[in-house]
């Protein structure tokens, strides 16, 4: 079982770094996109709200494999040409963004309306109300769900392996073809994922502890 990592250290390392890279890039992209769509969803402009709701409903009810399938195999046929890594980022972030949007929206919904009314009656402008009253409170409520969504995203990123992206799960096929026992190959890959997800979950717990306030 140990020879699997001894012999394939470089390959596993590449895969591990690939998954990390995918995590960071998709994490940032889906946070940005999710925030943008959440902004649409809570805006006072009906068409933007409809768009936000439609996006969330559509992507939350679409299997991620189908999105990967449509992006990685369908985009080239429409002459949208990107690298496999970029395809993976597009597929994973559009999917995760729908969930992030909902986490942000329900975070905003936890802020009592009196908070904003008090801020406005003190003469605060929209920007001040938003940045000093609403978002600090909404952010605290949204951090735990967003954190678990990002952890789920890491697990979901394994699907990218089937669409030619260099990442951890993808290394398994090379190693199994080279004659290593699939059991140990997959055990080591699972450990690799556990390292990332458990680290993230520990970081998240620390962050939550730091942000926790008594309401």
């Amino acid at each position: 079982m140990l020879e699997v990592i001894q012999d394939n250290w470089d390959l596993l390392q590449d895969g591990f770094v690939g998954t990390l890279k995918l995590t960071v890039v998709c994490g940032i992209a889906s946070l940005l996109l999710g925030t943008l769509i959440a902004a649409c969803r809570v805006s006072p402009v009906p068409p933007l709200r409809w768009f936000g709701a439609a996006y969330v409903n559509l992507f939350r009810n679409t299997p991620l494999t189908l999105i990967f399938f449509a992006v990685a195999l369908g985009f080239p046929k429409l002459r949208f040409n990107f690298s496999f890594f970029q395809f993976a980022v597009i597929a994973l972030s559009t999917y995760t963004a729908a969930f992030i949007c909902e986490a942000i929206r329900s975070g905003i919904n936890t802020v009592p309306i009196g908070q904003a009314e008090a801020a406005r009656s003190l003469g605060m402008s929209f920007t001040q109300t938003l940045s000093q009253i609403v978002l600090p409170q909404a952010g605290r409520a949204a951090v735990p769900p967003i954190g678990s969504l990002l952890i789920a995203m890491v697990r979901n990123s394994a699907i990218a392996s089937a669409f030619n992206t260099t990442e951890l799960m993808g290394t398994s096929s090379t190693m199994i073809e080279n004659g290593y026992k699939s059991l140990w190959v997959l055990v080591w890959i699972a450990i690799g994922y556990l390292i990332i997800t458990l680290t993230m979950s520990a970081l998240l717990a620390a962050l939550e502890k730091k942000l926790a306030v008594v309401r």
């Binding site: 979901n156 394994a158 799960m169 026992k181 699939s182 059991l183 997959l186 994922y193």
Partner: peptide, 19 residues
Amino acid sequence: RAMPLLVLIFMLYLVPGSQ
């Protein structure tokens, strides 16, 4: 819950046969 579902499915798919 911490393990990717895909890794689990591949284990169940490949390991019984290869062992």
